[in-house]
Design a protein around this nucleic acid. Structure first.
Lengths: 142, 142
DNA sequence: GCTTGAATCTACAGTAGCTAGAGGATGTAA
DNA sequence: TTACATCCTCTAGCTACTGTAGATTCAAGC
């Protein structure tokens, strides 16, 4: 039986975050000691690990909730999980493309920008320039 | 002269977001009509475009503020811009690494998960499994 | 010139996903 | 049994927006 602090350590989560997940219904209400402290078992450790890894991979709590629901009801088709994954993959690839462009620009800036003044520096222009914007106006959010 | 609505359209920003940027000092207070409505010129369009593109690339508003400050004071040495650029480059590369890992995982998920049922689907297990967690416990935040 | 309706205004509340702090209770090891 | 780390609840704060209410303004059509 794990205390909330140990569960936190094992999963790299803050204690408050675990309580927050419980509050919003992502984690179940755990058993308690006589004195009212939370105690966790392996099932909860697995569930929290899943949540944390998903978060690290960029899933929103809503997407995670969807996946956990699938996991809780395995009779459903996998197509649903697949759709979620595909959605996330599209977002990930968009982000990577943008970051790649930025990285190129930052590298050039660092290279060219040695003892000059900001006025000669094109980084700001690059990101300001509309013509260099390929994937215009798509969403930012996770 | 652009209305706030047209500026919003041109930059893919919500009207409220523009007002929010003004409120926190990222965007300057624009000129107003007699009736009190905001009117924007090209300088503001450029500035907002820069902000939006930077946000799309994952920069925090604070980082953007730094870059804009440099742009607003081109008499400063480029060393400062260089330092910021280097810092950002590090962040960008970290992000790309994480996204790359995610992309691999999502692709594998989609590949393995074809027409089966959730019970057979390893997506949930993969993310739950501690042993497959390589980059354990690193931060998530932007 | 007048009307109409979309767009704007301010102000405030709500969202996601946490994070921090106060003030007090509990658990455990020496 | 005492010290003190950890736990509890509750509340507030954070970033970066987003939405709503109710009033005002602008521009186009008649």
């Amino acid at each position: 039986m794990l205390t909330i602090g140990n569960l936190a350590k094992k999963t790299g989560t803050k204690v408050q975050t675990i309580r927050y997940y419980e509050q919003i219904g992502l984690m179940p209400e755990p058993g308690r000691t006589e004195g009212g402290q939370r105690r966790y078992g392996d099932a909860e450790l697995d569930r929290l690990s899943f949540i944390r890894h998903s978060r690290q991979l960029g899933f929103s709590l809503d997407a995670i909730r969807e996946l956990l629901d699938l996991s809780d009801h395995p009779e459903k088709s996998c197509d649903e999980a697949d759709a979620i994954a595909r959605r996330q993959l599209r977002q990930v690839e968009q982000r990577m493309a943008r970051l790649k462009a930025l990285r190129t620009e930052l590298k050039r800036m660092i290279h060219e920008c040695s003892g000059g003044r900001t006025a000669d520096c094109r980084v700001l222009e690059v990101l300001r320039d509309h013509s260099e914007c390929l994937t215009e106006h798509d969403d930012i959010g996770a």
